[in-house]
Design a binder for these strands. Structure first.
Lengths: 242, 242
DNA sequence: AATTTTCATTTGTCATACAATTAAACGTCT
DNA sequence: AGACGTTTAATTGTATGACAAATGAAAATT
């Protein structure tokens, strides 16, 4: 685990990279304790603040966790799905907000990936998943629900759909695609009429999954994608006129 | 932009969160310069090393970049697809390696998502994408190619397939799913016979995309998934016996 | 006008010190 | 002996001050 003295990069970045590579390569295993900051400083021949900056970089990626006190220190962190979700969502959200991604492009990606889960979800969804979907559908039909709550419920519904596929890797991958869309969706004003249409499509999806009919669910998702794009287009048009 | 003095979390983590939230909320826009470290230290009422640790956390997520010298400082970074790819791949790779995800589960997720790109790729792939795929297929047929190079070429092939969909958000989302599998794929020894089978399926996929036949491409991808799982099972079986 | 020099600003790094936390080791009392 | 509080050593968290290195602007010089 060495650093390149003639590199132009920050020392803390180099040290972070060296440790990160060691973790990825399996030289440092989960829950293994890294040397103390003082020891690392000596090993890399830098000061402790520099080592600390490197460790904070790794902590920001959830690669390590630190614990104070005697027998504390920095430990290789087992990356949990939950933490990975969070990073995925943050990254995806920023990517969408900073790169002028059109609503249609983001929407297309999201629904295409979601449809990929549908056949599996039709086979494997548990009664729990179905119950969650039904509950969210009911919630979406409540009058007086704010647009933001409606969106949040929408995300919960789709998340249940994705989780129904019973593949945690897919759930993780989809988290970014679905949740990162939420800020974009929040720009839409959902009229009673459009909510009714969406609830109808959600019901069709839930029914199809209950009947283990993947194709029907996929078809409803296609329609939902098209309808969502239409809603967004209307919002844009109204905004341009106003 | 405030921090909570009674929180138990590290000050640097709180400060990083405050700035990150400001970026996500749009209070700090792309290329905007943050106050100098000294000013931030004063604003948050902490020392400069603490501020620096916070900034390094943000730099690790590519949220900011720093520049030395007069009129230098920390700037809000435009998150590029390339950087987002990198983080996605790192996170996904660690997730797969640390959570004892079975090969089948990872493989299923990858091919399911990839199939989601196929119909779009069949419609939109450019001659360039096709040429890349053909080139990689040719490469994969070369005798004397190492297993690692074969895997790398495989990734390049599938990446061209995904990019062919012409949706950068999908390409970004898929980067993790495809590249994170590589370490798992590298465990497989590809015999001349199995390479031939894979090249054959790749050719079918390329042909289907050239003919704009999404269904045929999807079908070939399904077979490729099944075949890959079979290969992995054989390796596992051999390892158990040996 | 072009070039060089100076200079102020800012990040990068170092050294040192102290506070806060924590678990183990130790000692005391029952 | 065992339960329970106390000390202690190790380690991270934070602060202070200093200097080096880079960098662009401004001033001085040719």
């Amino acid at each position: 685990m060495k650093i390149d003295p003639k590199s132009s990069a920050d020392l803390s970045a180099q040290i972070a990279k060296a440790i990160r590579d060691a973790i990825i390569a399996g030289d440092l295993i989960v829950d293994e304790r890294l040397p103390s900051e003082a020891e690392l400083a000596e090993q890399f021949d830098v000061s402790r603040p520099t080592v600390r900056e490197a460790l904070k970089r790794l902590a920001a990626q959830s690669l390590i966790r630190t614990q104070r006190g005697a027998f504390g220190g920095a430990f290789v962190n087992r990356l949990r799905y939950e933490e990975a979700y969070g990073q995925q969502v943050t990254t995806s959200t920023l990517l969408l907000s900073m790169n002028e991604v059109s609503f249609d492009v983001a929407c297309e990606a999201r629904y295409a990936l979601e449809r990929a889960c549908t056949p599996l979800s039709a086979q494997r969804r548990s009664p729990d998943h179905l119950a969650t979907m039904r509950a969210e559908i009911h919630r979406q039909g409540q009058p007086g629900l704010s647009d933001e709550s409606f969106c949040a419920s929408d995300v919960a519904f789709h998340r249940a759909l994705v989780d129904g596929a019973g593949n945690p890797v897919m759930s993780y991958q989809l988290a970014g695609a679905v949740e990162a869309m939420q800020p974009l969706m929040n720009m839409i004003t959902f009229t009673a009429r459009s909510r009714e249409a969406i609830v109808g499509l959600h019901t069709r999806i839930a029914d199809a999954l209950e009947a283990s009919d993947g194709a029907a669910a996929e078809s409803a998702l296609h329609e939902l994608e098209a309808y969502t794009k239409t809603l967004a287009r209307d919002v844009m048009a109204a905004r341009t006129r106003g």
